[in-house]
Write a protein that binds this DNA or RNA. Sequence first.
DNA 1: CCCTCTTGAATGAATCGTCATTCACCAAGA
DNA 2: TCTTGGTGAATGACGATTCATTCAAGAGGG
Lengths: 209, 209
Amino acid sequence: MVRRGGRGRGAEKRERILRAAIKIFSHKGFFNSKISDIARSAGVADGTIYLYFKNKDDLLISLFEEKMAEVVADVRGRVAAGNGALSRLKIFIENHMSLLVREAGLIEVLQVELRQSNKFMKEYVPVKFLEYLDVISEILELGKREGTFRRDLNVTMARRAVFGALDEIALAYVLSRKRKYDPADAAAEIYRMFAEGLCTTAQNREGRT
Amino acid sequence: MVRRGGRGRGAEKRERILRAAIKIFSHKGFFNSKISDIARSAGVADGTIYLYFKNKDDLLISLFEEKMAEVVADVRGRVAAGNGALSRLKIFIENHMSLLVREAGLIEVLQVELRQSNKFMKEYVPVKFLEYLDVISEILELGKREGTFRRDLNVTMARRAVFGALDEIALAYVLSRKRKYDPADAAAEIYRMFAEGLCTTAQNREGRT
DNA sequence: CCCTCTTGAATGAATCGTCATTCACCAAGA
DNA sequence: TCTTGGTGAATGACGATTCATTCAAGAGGG
């Protein structure tokens, strides 16, 4: 007997479906994707998907939560290796941009569908996504304690700003077929922008308005 | 005779439809919105919408382009009043956040639907949105010429970062029913983040890795 | 060791709603 | 009367979800 929840063959099939969903959703978008597309790509029957997921929405949300959980666990490990807030921030940014290559499909789905789901599925709280933001918060808090970051830095705001900048640049990368720049270079640029700001050294002390 | 293109009564009806579309799309999202919802809200028949727009996609895209054109023209005027890049950047940021109040519906539609359309309607190039980004570019270029901003600042990257930060913070504002913060305060915070960076003064000269 | 029998996963064709879009028809102004 | 914008019911497609049926594999009795 095959159990669907555990580690058995059922789990492997579930995983196949999730991977297929990422592929199809990232190519055509959630609303333009047919369950039958996903089923075909996963090599299962349409009905089989409903043995593992309640419905199409549930498939999308499971995908978000389960894949983001992996990403969060992974980045937490990497970030912990950095010493000091600046080093950790750098690692976080580099990791996010490298996800563009390692997990292109997942990132694409998140970029376009997460906002939709977040806004229109009233019951859905993107737990794992918020945890991802928490990783940024922790870095910023550390920096404040260390004295690296301004004491009056608004962390709730700043973490959104950091994520937003990363996300928008990642989006531009994904959308431009020509791949104008290298994600690693982009990461370095973004890091500098936040660490140093936009201004020259001279301006930094007088630029306040 | 009523001409649909020009300034006549036709234009007024078209405008009503666009406004209704913003309202409905922002509430329920593009794919969950029915043409009949929009028609009812605009006080016209379903078929009338097809006299003014080719189809549902065209309605969304017209909405993007026409409303963004207004926003771009408006912000260009405001920004021009600032003297110096920092002042202009501040104005741009403040204006964007104030749109959250003035044009809430439009901003919400842009936030969730623009990415979709941009990615999945292959023919669609978001001309007016790119112009909005250009306004940021111009400010950044000015700053470089002035010597306010770093000469090695990558403008293509930085403009995305600025927009991304604004957009993400605006999104958080829209999604949080409780309205935790004031858009004007948020604007000030974002401005500082870009002008000064995250670091304290002391760290600013050694924070490079 | 072989032959039922039972169980439940997997299948995929049929169902049932849901809209976007169309178009035959109406009314009001010229 | 003729023109044209406007109407909204009817159409046609599409696609998520269901469910009657199939099938494989273990259980157990002889």
